[in-house]
Simulated assay, not measured.
Amino acid sequence: MIIQGKHIIIDAFECDALHLNNITYLEALCNKAAMDAGMEVLNSYFYPFQPQGLTGFLLLSTSHLSIHTWPEERYASLDFYTCGDQDLTAQVDFLIRGLSTKKAMVYSMERGVSQPQLVKFNEMTAFDHLKEKTSQELDS
């Protein structure tokens, strides 16, 4: 049996604090990222904390997508795991733009690998000019 997967971990800094506390917006953002990747969303659960912040989780037929937010710090952490060898670059970019992130650390690793590997790392910056496009994509 071949076990193969991709695990993406995103640390998003200097995000739009209003987005990070908007449960409707974030659920739509995560759902669109998963569906645009051709993934089936089996279940979605987002929980708001008081006075702010939230945790959201999408159970996917190919694994999961989760988000945890700290609006007071303008920070979000995301975990995107999928079976197979899909390229998730477009979905990562979409999520980062959707949070209006100014700086993101993106870690990528293969799952189901039986030998040591290097975790891939990418720093992404300057997403302000793309903010409007993501909002329009969610509205459509």
Rank of each mutant, 00 (worst) to 15 (best):
H7V: 11
V92K: 05
G5E: 08
F57R: 10
D128H: 09
S108V: 08
F127H: 14
L26I: 09
T101G: 01
I2K: 10
F49P: 00
Q117V: 12
S44D: 05
K120Y: 00
H7C: 06
A28K: 15
C83H: 07
E123Q: 15
C15R: 04
Q117L: 13
K6W: 04
L65G: 06
F94H: 01
S100G: 09
D11A: 12
L54P: 03
E72M: 11
N31T: 11
H68Y: 12
Q4C: 07
P116A: 15
T82M: 02
I67T: 08
L20F: 08
H64K: 09
L26S: 02
F13L: 13
T62H: 10
L60R: 06
Q4W: 06
G84W: 12
V41F: 03
I2Y: 01
M35I: 15
P71N: 03
S44E: 08
S140M: 13
L18H: 06
I3A: 05
I23C: 02
F57T: 12
E14Q: 13
A33W: 07
Q52H: 14
A76D: 07
V106D: 01
A33Q: 10
T24Y: 08
P51I: 03
L42K: 13
S77L: 07
T82F: 03
F49E: 11
T134H: 01
T101C: 11
D128W: 06
D139G: 03
V106P: 00
F57L: 15
L78C: 08
A90M: 11
K102D: 07
T69M: 01
M39Q: 06
S114H: 05
L99F: 11
M39G: 02
D36G: 07
Q136W: 03
E110L: 14
L118P: 00
E27H: 03
Q115C: 10
H19C: 10
S140W: 09
H7R: 13
Q117K: 06
I8D: 00
L138Y: 05
V92L: 02
Q91F: 08
Q50K: 14
Q86G: 00
Q136R: 11
G84R: 10
